[in-house]
Each structure stands twice: as structure tokens, then as C-alpha cells.
Nucleic acid binder design. Structure first.
Lengths: 237, 237
DNA sequence: CGATCGTTTGACAAGGGTCAAAATGCGTGG
DNA sequence: CCACGCATTTTGACCCTTGTCAAACGATCG
């Protein structure tokens, strides 16, 4: 793994992820790898996109965690979603596009410019599928916040994060890194840090997860899934 | 108004709305007007898009209200957002796109195919801006569900609906139609119908809104706005 | 070894949910 | 035009989940 990373620093998770969306042409992969050679580093807590600012370029997150957020006047903050390795930023819709959210680094980040899609490759398609995937997770987040209990929210969200990290090859079986404070989790799930703490303790006590030192281990995926599995059909009234 | 509607049945609100996003070329307007001549009618409660089904074409809603929803196995339902006149459906991202949500008619609907954008017009741009606008409202909905109280959620949501209807020319000053039951509002805002009822009564008692017979009148917009006005800058910690 | 940030715990309060029933509104058919 | 039936709104009583406030505990870093 380290050998690969040395060949083209940090491009692996992003490539793994983008190739999981659409099969990429060799030229696409080359384009991403060479873009990754000119990467920028960003420190934790740095605001890498400001809500309302104009979007100039499309970026790929190579490593680290960031989040989209909105802040209310009185200081309440809602985290709208996380940006994980392989995700796109400023996947803009039109010229003069404006950032709809602020994006803030949680950990140190490595970013690079997304290559301009060539007509003979599949990058354009990959970016479109990535946008559709993002929308899917937004819908899921709305459902989570509107209709799930605190316990269910955390369960569903942990499974979602695991799924997304797995698509970048960043899980180790049922274990993965979770470099977030409980306060960030609370701001994600519409809860308070105190209640997140208590709910996580219940999950540990029930043998559903392990969580220490910024890593999670899903012990009973079935039980977690059972809580929140959505029903795709069957519209009541 | 009726004279206009008779000239090109029902196209006015959609045109009004799309032109508010991007100035349209005469050819664009013609294309939409002729598409509107071949419109389909849909009955209330009809499911016009099924989650997971493939998206074949882009549609424009000409009149009526519909909503995006997800339903959980145990019957809990979350309404993800409303489709109002001038909104697009199946604003698809890529070939083989799949519907991320179910879409259900609230009132009788009139729909038509969205014309294929021509390179010399602005329709493509308009559709892209519409998609960006949709994303903006999704973010707002997440913030509403995650961080606002019941009272604030209703206030913020009413203002959003008014803003959107105004962009289609469907408001009458501070008054507009709201053809929804309190149960639908509850499923939108992550509340129960009982609590929606009580909160609406408080708002009436406080002289903030009037609400009867499927119409709303915003009496004190400033007070409602004060509750929820977001702060675009200022990232805490 | 203090300072600072994050986690954990406790006591208490409140916003919102649940259940059940009554009241109101509305479309349909006689 | 009235009566019926169904959907929707409204009300009441009760309670549970989650928030609030405050303090203690633990870890990490200059």
C-alpha cells in the first residue's frame, strides 16, 4: 500500500472511489494521477469553501475529512454532510455558480484540482454519478433527521459512513477511522453532545459497536440495519 | 390572466419561474409553450415517480403540488421537499439515472416533457440553475430539521414556500394557496400532526399568520424571519 | 505540570409525542 | 336541500425522549 502511495501520492482512495462509480478510461486515471501530483494541503478547522462565494474550480479530496455546514445567527450549527476521500467539491452546476454551503476541514486535508473531463473518457459521467450519489445521501440525511430517534440516527449514520469509506477502500473489515468529536456528531445529527455521548454508551453496552481513539468497530451490523432499513415501495396514503 | 392561460394552457407559472432563473431565448420559450400543449393530467395521490425506477425523461410541472418522499418499513414517512409549478422532475444527472425518491401528487397535476436544450438557447443553463436551487433548498431543509424548534421550522418553511410560489407568480401579496393537510406538514417537518396543529394555533393567536381553507396569509413576515434568518458567515470553532 | 479540549456523569426541565375522543368541515347521494 | 360518512382539525391528559446546566474526569500538548 505504501509503495502505491509513493508512486502517486494519495491518489489511491480517490481513484478507488471514482472507479467504483463508473469504469474509468486509462486516460482518465492518468489525468487524476497527474492532478494529484500538484496537491494542496489544508489544516484542520480551515474553511476551504465559503458559503456564497463563487465556485471557480472543481476539486477532489484526496485524503482527510471535511464537512458542509450552515451556521445560524445564534450560533447553532448544522453539519449537512461530510466530504470524504474521493468526493468532489464545487461539482458546480453552471457558470457563476455560488457555494451553497461552507466547507470546513476536520483533519488535515490533501486536495487537488479535478481534471477537465475529455469527451472520449468517462470522467464527466463519473462526476455526474458522484453528484447523484451526493443527492442520495442528502435525502437520506433529511429522512434521518426528520423521522429517526437519536439511537436510530446514530446507527444509520455510522452505517452510511462505513459504506462511503468502504467505497474508497478506507475500511478494515468492520472497522474504520472516525476522526470526529461527539460535538461534531451532535451537530450532524441534530442532537446535543451530551445525548450523543449517552446514546453511544448504550450502543457499546448493548454490544453493537466499539468506539475508542477515533476508530469505530461495527459489531452487530444486522441489529443496526434492522433499526433503519428503509422501505423503497409501499406509499401509504 | 385567464386569457393568457387559454393562449398556452398552464404554461405561464412554469415560464415565469424558469425565466426568473435565467433569461430565456425566444426559441426556449416557444419550445416550452409547445411542450405544454401536450400535457398530461395526474390525479391526487398518484405516484408519478417510483424510488429506484429508471429516469427516462425530464418533466416540467405546469400546475399543482407534488412531493418527494421516503417511507420506512414501519410506515414512518418523511417528505423531502415539494414540487411546485415550474419545477423540474427527473432533472437527471447521467444515463441510467435512477430515481432517488418517490414523487406523489397532492393535488391534480399538469405535467409536460421538458424540451431538449438547444446549444443556442439558455434552457440547459436554466435546468442547471434549477438543480442548484433544488440543492439549496435541500440544505435548508436539513438545517431546519436538525436545528430549529417546531415553531421555527413551521415559520421558516412557510417563508420558503412563499418565496418559491412567488417565483412562479403564484402568490397574491402575502397570501398564497397551501393545499396540504396538517399531517403532510408534519411529515415534512419531522413533527406530529397534533403538534403542528398546536403550533399553528399559537402562530394565529400571536397574529403571525392567518390560515383557513387551504390559504395562508403571512401577517408578520419580520417576526417570522427574525426567528430563522441564517448567518452566512462566522464559523464558530 | 498547568492549560485546554473532549468525554462522562448527575439532576432537572421542557419540548414534543402518544393515545383517544370530540368537533368541524366537506363531498356525495337521496 | 338535507343527511350521511369520511377526512381533517382540535382538544385533553399523560409521559417519554431529549435538552440544559454544571461539574468532574481524562487525555493531550506545550
Amino acid at each position: 500500500m505504501n509503495a502505491i502511495l509513493n508512486k502517486v501520492p494519495l491518489a489511491e482512495p480517490a481513484l478507488f472511489r471514482l472507479r467504483s462509480l463508473v469504469p474509468l478510461a486509462a486516460a482518465d486515471i492518468d489525468a487524476i494521477e497527474s492532478a494529484a501530483l500538484e496537491r494542496r494541503e489544508v489544516s484542520p478547522r480551515c474553511e476551504i469553501q465559503v458559503e456564497g462565494s463563487s465556485i471557480k474550480e472543481r476539486l477532489i479530496l484526496l485524503s482527510g475529512w471535511a464537512f458542509h455546514a450552515r451556521v445560524l445567527r445564534d450560533g447553532r450549527r448544522q453539519i449537512l454532510g461530510y466530504v470524504l476521500p474521493g468526493d468532489l467539491l464545487g461539482n458546480c452546476y453552471h457558470r457563476n455558480a455560488v457555494a451553497a454551503t461552507s466547507v470546513i476541514a476536520v483533519t488535515p486535508l490533501a486536495l487537488c484540482r479535478a481534471p477537465t473531463p475529455e469527451p472520449d473518457g468517462n470522467l464527466s459521467e463519473a462526476f455526474a454519478v458522484a453528484a447523484a450519489t451526493d443527492a442520495h445521501y442528502l435525502y437520506r440525511h433529511i429522512t434521518r433527521l426528520g423521522r429517526l430517534s437519536a439511537f436510530e440516527r446514530i446507527a444509520d449514520w455510522l452505517l452510511e459512513i462505513r459504506e462511503r469509506l468502504a467505497s474508497s477502500g478506507l475500511t478494515n473489515g468492520h472497522e474504520f477511522a472516525l476522526p470526529l468529536t461527539q460535538e461534531l456528531i451532535a451537530d450532524t445529527l441534530g442532537l446535543t453532545n451530551v445525548h450523543v455521548n449517552r446514546t453511544l454508551q448504550t450502543m457499546r453496552r448493548d454490544g453493537l459497536i466499539e468506539l475508542r481513539g477515533g476508530r469505530v468497530l461495527i459489531l452487530d451490523e444486522l441489529a443496526l440495519n434492522r433499526l433503519v432499513d428503509p422501505c423503497p415501495l409501499q406509499i401509504s396514503r
